[in-house]
Amino acid sequence: MARGEVRALSGWRTSEVVGVRAETATARTLSLRVPDWPGSLAGQHVDVRLTAPDGYQAVRSYSLASPALAPADEVVVEIGVELLDDGEVSPFLVEEVRPGDVLEVTGPLGGWFTWDPDRDGGPVQLVGGGSGVVPLLSVVRTHAALGSPVPLRLLQSTRTPAAAMYRDELEQRAGQDSGFALTEVWTREAPPGDPRPPGRLDAALLAAATVPAAQRPTCYVCGPTPFVEVVADLLVAAGHPAARVRTERFGG
């Protein structure tokens, strides 16, 4: 990518929380109204800054769930936030924040874990673990908004149905869009009637539920570090060139 094609916004912009939606018991989607948006690609993130009354500040990065957005004087973007044990910022964003609150945003950020159909061409394979689905939803929404003809598959691994973020939307989109295929893997508890007993992703399931290496997809893997390590290794073992496997690791 040419340098400067994906630009960070210079400076922090005051942003109002305009929507709070519960996705699971521990995850929220926040809608933020952000001024001076320079445009964003699917898969990017923003930095969010909170300021306490005494001036103390804390900053964290959150993935955009929104599809790619054109430059605009003002946009509403969605970020997905999951509560982290012992977190400093996520407990506030998940349990405390409400519409009308103000915080600051800079971004969009990230120039690698992004899907740009003009640049990346060819089929797309997404593999998500838990809340790693957030930037992948951005890709799915972008694919739908563009009416993109390239095949898109998402293999999403989640502990239990109760912990699944964006499940209804993903299943609905998979049902409507013949270019998008969704496979859900449940590691601890499967929904009633699911043909596969709960268990972790393995090579056989990956082979059955992903775009074959011969079709040269660009792969995007996002989730907790151990999950990403395992999946990236499986993809390389299945013949995907390492340079076509893009990863984003959440947490420690």
Binding site: T14, L50, T51, Y56, Q57, F92, D101
Partner: peptide, 28 residues
């Protein structure tokens, strides 16, 4: 910066050793 209602945060790091905009983690 506008104050974010209800946010107090933690102050765990000795400020002198922490570059601007960073937070301390015990993990890797």
């Amino acid at each position: 910066s506008p104050v974010t209602r209800g946010f107090t945060g933690r102050r765990r790091a000795p400020a002198a050793a922490l570059p601007p905009g960073q937070y301390v983690t015990e993990e890797f």
